[in-house]
Simulated assay, not measured.
Amino acid sequence: MSEHTLNRHALAILDAEPTAERIDHYRKPFMVLWAAVQEASAEIMDEYGLSQDLAQLWVAEQLRQVTDSLVDRLAEKALQHGASKSNVARAAGASPANATRRFPRLKENHPAGRTLIDDVLDELE
């Protein structure tokens, strides 16, 4: 079997798992993320006087934007390492037929400019 076929099969198995089992795969990272949202929002509340609900929403939205950028970067990386566009789309929960619509940067001859994740990673150095 080719790597493409093996990956497609594995993604199909993951997609068919019951919700509780799927959540088990990312429960721990989510709990870390939730704790981080609470901690960061507490700082926003203290510094800016924003309500807890709005501070948590603001922090979570910033993280969502960075995470979206990270997903785009990981899609590019997977393609560069030989994954097919259809499996990249499947891994992201998108239709294989819509791979380049979901990930415009996967189009051939698309300039690989900076993304939000680049700015965030630069700040961590």
Rank of each mutant, 00 (worst) to 15 (best):
A12W: 04
E125Q: 07
D24I: 01
P18I: 13
L63F: 14
Y26H: 04
R101V: 14
Q80W: 03
L70C: 07
L124V: 12
P111C: 02
E61D: 11
K85G: 01
V32A: 09
P111F: 11
G113F: 06
D72M: 07
L116V: 09
A40C: 06
A91W: 01
M45A: 04
D15W: 03
T19Q: 13
A92N: 05
E47A: 10
A60K: 00
L121W: 13
A99V: 10
V71K: 06
V88Q: 05
H81D: 15
E125D: 13
K28L: 15
W34H: 08
Q52S: 10
G113L: 12
H81V: 02
W34R: 05
S86F: 03
L121E: 13
R105I: 12
G49H: 04
A40D: 04
T67R: 07
L63M: 15
R90L: 15
G49R: 02
R22E: 04
L14H: 07
H81Y: 12
A36M: 11
I13G: 02
A112T: 09
D122W: 11
H25F: 01
A12Q: 13
T115W: 07
L124Y: 09
A83I: 03
A94I: 00
E108S: 12
E39I: 04
P104Q: 08
K85Y: 01
P29W: 05
E17Q: 15
A75S: 14
D24S: 14
V66R: 05
D122T: 07
D122S: 11
V59Y: 00
G82C: 11
